[in-house]
């Protein structure tokens, strides 16, 4: 809405300036000697030329960098989700090695009951939950969350995704989805005059997003009893 208003305002300012010049032309133009005109246009050109070295001096460390290996990361992520769908479950070690898959949290909880039940928030999404039994009874539950490749255009922002909130209390593991996240990006497209000779079909880049999936891996002591309850289809023991 504010954008529309600002554009209307600019349009009105433009109209006002045009009319001002049209009707006040003799008063405006007569005192303007060619010397003044050359000075004004020269100053304008000079300021613009001065900006070129300034642009190259600006540090670019804060900017978002684009990546080259997007296709490989997305293919790897899709392959992983496909394997999960086909009941081919990876271990935590496998996930650590996969390209495009990022571990975004790792927590350890003390076992406070002989059973482990689950409480999943309804809006948690379809996170696959994989349970891996340890070889020992160390009295600890290790929970790791993984996120598959998340891209918009060539920008990888997988690492910016927040993991779900996880708690273990009285033998109940609770998962709470993070608050809705909003990501805003600003993409600069080169002018069409450059794009024509820069092997680019369009000056506007393809910025379609590829959404990620989160995977939760829970490593439990060997003897801990798992109560999957009604969520048996989402919780897989591997």
């Amino acid at each position: 809405m504010s954008r529309v208003l600002s554009q209307i305002l600019l349009f009105l300012i433009g109209i006002a300036i045009v009319f001002m010049f049209k009707f006040k032309r003799p008063k405006f133009y007569r005192p303007l000697s060619w010397k003044l005109n050359v000075l004004a246009t020269g100053l304008y050109l000079g300021v613009l030329i001065m900006l070129v070295p300034i642009l190259y001096m600006l540090p670019a460390k804060d900017f978002i960098k684009t990546v080259e290996s997007k296709d490989q990361a997305i293919a790897s992520s899709l392959n992983l989700m496909n394997n999960l769908y086909n009941q081919h479950f990876p271990t935590e070690g496998d996930l650590d090695k996969l390209e495009g898959v990022y571990k975004n949290s790792c927590q350890t909880f003390k076992v406070d009951s002989s059973k482990l039940s689950f409480d999943l928030q309804p809006n948690i999404g379809n996170y696959p939950i994989l349970i891996e039994r340890k070889d020992i009874d160390d009295g600890e539950i290790d929970v790791s969350t993984y996120v598959t490749a998340q891209y918009v255009g060539e920008v990888n922002f997988t690492k910016r995704l927040l993991p779900p909130a996880i708690t273990v209390k009285n033998g109940m593991l609770s998962l709470r989805a993070p608050d809705r996240q909003t990501f805003e990006f600003k993409q600069f497209n080169i002018d069409f005059t450059m794009a024509q000779f820069d092997n680019q079909n369009s000056s506007i880049h393809e910025m379609s997003p590829h959404f990620s999936n989160q995977i939760i891996v829970i490593r439990v002591p060997q003897s801990l009893e798992i109560n999957r309850g009604v969520l048996g289809d989402r919780i897989q023991i591997i």
Partner: peptide
């Protein structure tokens, strides 16, 4: 103000991209 805007959402997160260019000036 940007020359184009793209936004997309999957329920848990939303992504928006504002594109800028000086092509309009040219």
């Amino acid at each position: 103000n940007g020359i184009s805007h793209m936004s997309s959402s999957n329920g848990e997160l939303s992504v928006s991209v504002n594109s800028y260019s000086a092509s309009l000036v040219i």
